[in-house]
Amino acid sequence: MTRRAQTGWAFAGPALAMLTIFFFVPVLLAFLLSLTDFDLYALADFSDLRFVGFGNYSELFNTPLFWKALSNTFYFVIVGVPLSIGLSLGAALLLHGLTAKLAGFFRTALFAPVVTTLVAVAVIWRYLLHTRYGMINYGLESLGIDPVDWLGDPDWAMPAIIFFAVWKNFGYNMVILLAGLQTIPSDLYEAARIDGANRWQQFRHVTLPGLAPMLLLVSILTMAGYFQLFAEPYVMTQGGPVESTVSVLYFMYEQGFKWWNLGVASAVAFILFLIIFALTLIQYHFASKRGAA
């Protein structure tokens, strides 16, 4: 090896070794683990470990709570992601027309929730959503609406968590979309106006196509993030009421670290990974067909 090649490996080697040992190897092991009956007994003594093929997967497909966790998570993603991106886009449009100084101020304000600690703000929101003395029910009452048992009613717990999640992360995509808006040449709007396009038509035919690549990116990132729902139900509802907020990761955590069914939990993690991966590919394929990517 030349001196330069040696240096290259000396500089990149440690990081690559760490990634291999503590990331790539565990990914492979996760798959192997999901093919075993690893449980509390195996944790004590590895010789109790048995290979069960896809037994954990078929067992999961016969577990009602797993299906419940999947459908809760899909609910969270399908409602939450469009809502979040919609608000991000709306906020980005509001910021776009402002002078640099004002835009900077509002951008910081709207972005603040993104950098906060999820667990700490979940505690705030649990209190805001409190049935008896929460600020949100107080606001509703002054509009003449009856109090809602947000986190205690199986129909409202997930919507409440979605509302919180949207608050927490809309600023992130807002910043990306704002940067996207700034790359759309203003003569395109000029030309559209000359052709007599109204504001909505300008938005529909200039803004949206111009933002398409960014929207694709933002929706993939947000979707992948929303599938990883965990801390919100852990802190706010502990999966309840009547399991209405058990997410896939919450289910994985309980299986793995509460009941020590590490084989089953690994199968859950792998299914989640495959879902995210498949949906990313589908979105990408769908968008590249329409020329966005």
Partner: peptide, 16 residues
């Protein structure tokens, strides 16, 4: 590999 969620590694990493 950026698309692999970190949670996939958590169970084996715990055992390691």
């Amino acid at each position: 590999a950026l698309v692999i969620p970190a949670q996939v590694t958590m169970l084996p990493l715990f055992l390691m």
